[in-house]
Amino acid sequence: METAKADIVQRLRKEILQLQGIPSALPASVESFGLGPINAAFPGKTFPLAAVHEFIMQQPEAAAASSAFVMALVGKILPKGASAVWISAQRKIFPPALKSYGISPEQFIFIGLKKDKEIQWAMEEALKCKGLGIVLAEMQELDFTSSRRLQLAVEKSRVTGFVFRNNPRSINTNACFTRWQISALPALLPPGLPGVGYPRWKIELLKVRNGIPGSWELSFVNGQFRHAIKTPVMPLHAKQKTG
């Protein structure tokens, strides 16, 4: 009796998630992306693809950190040979750097548009495109209606979208699936060791639909995420230098 009840509850939960446009659990092979404990924050315990993720950033340094975190994820999500679109008012990305995130820079098509409205329209059009792997867009403001349109496009096409909001005037409510804020943290290196360590970020998940927001510290070492590193690691290029 008890187990039957639990089953029903489980099934109903799943149905509710589907009705809310939240993607059902992904095949086991692609899940997690090495995000470790962060996965527990999401409904279904996996990073939600086919959703729009919003990143808030105030300074250029935070923008670089957010881009890096997203690029690290994209490097795992984007299938080889698939195309991605990056829509922005001003391109800041240095294409050769993408290679170190496991992305071939020519997979990206950069579209330069001037106004937020144009960027939102172009992003919606791109998100409707089933042939695309990832769509990224940089904009300042994103109101509820526009974000709802993006979310609806995504639910149909199953493309993953990322919105970078540079210096937004207000952090308003919108229909994006998650809201993140990424900032840089000093790298972990034994004291006295020369060089700069691997990038380390403070990942703040401010909002997630049907999940548990939280804050984590995460390093990115040779293309893999790492949590709570006890023994600091020396970066590869520092090793080469010291001999």
């Binding site: 294409p95 020519e106 579209i111 330069g112 172009a122």
Partner: peptide
């Protein structure tokens, strides 16, 4: 996109 917004810059980069 380029039909609706003629000023759009569409670029792809190669080494």
């Amino acid at each position: 996109i380029s039909g609706k917004i003629p000023s759009a810059r569409i670029e792809r980069f190669l080494p």
